[in-house]
């Protein structure tokens, strides 16, 4: 059993996105975080102090632990942002801003 089977999901056509340049398959309706979890990825940010890995924590947009850079836009909450075909998702380091 998996969650898609449990809910008898018949999603629309899958599409590809990239995570740090690697291609992943995502489903319409998923958030960026859900697509990454489905691909076995659980961390996509390193902290600005200690450089430690982080991913989803609260899952509802409150904790900001799942911040990620999507299509060059930093500090997006992966648990809120829907994944779109062709998204370039990158591990966010530090503040997420250059220089």
């Amino acid at each position: 059993m998996n969650p898609l089977e449990l809910a008898d999901a018949r999603p629309g056509p899958a599409f590809t996105v990239t995570f740090d340049g690697r291609e992943l398959v995502a489903l319409p309706g998923q958030t960026v975080a859900a697509a990454l979890w489905a691909a076995g990825v659980t961390s996509w940010r390193t902290t600005r102090g200690e450089g430690r890995p982080r991913g989803v924590f609260c899952g509802i947009g409150v904790c900001f632990d799942c911040l990620v850079t999507v299509n060059g836009r930093p500090n997006q909450r992966a648990c809120l942002v829907p994944v779109e075909p062709g998204d370039a998702i990158r591990t966010q380091e530090g503040t997420g801003h250059d220089d």
Binding site: L4, L6, A7, A9, R10, L27, G29, Q30, T31, P82
Partner: peptide, 9 residues
Amino acid sequence: PAAGLGARR
């Protein structure tokens, strides 16, 4: 479930 996932159950 998000609409795009087409959950029937």
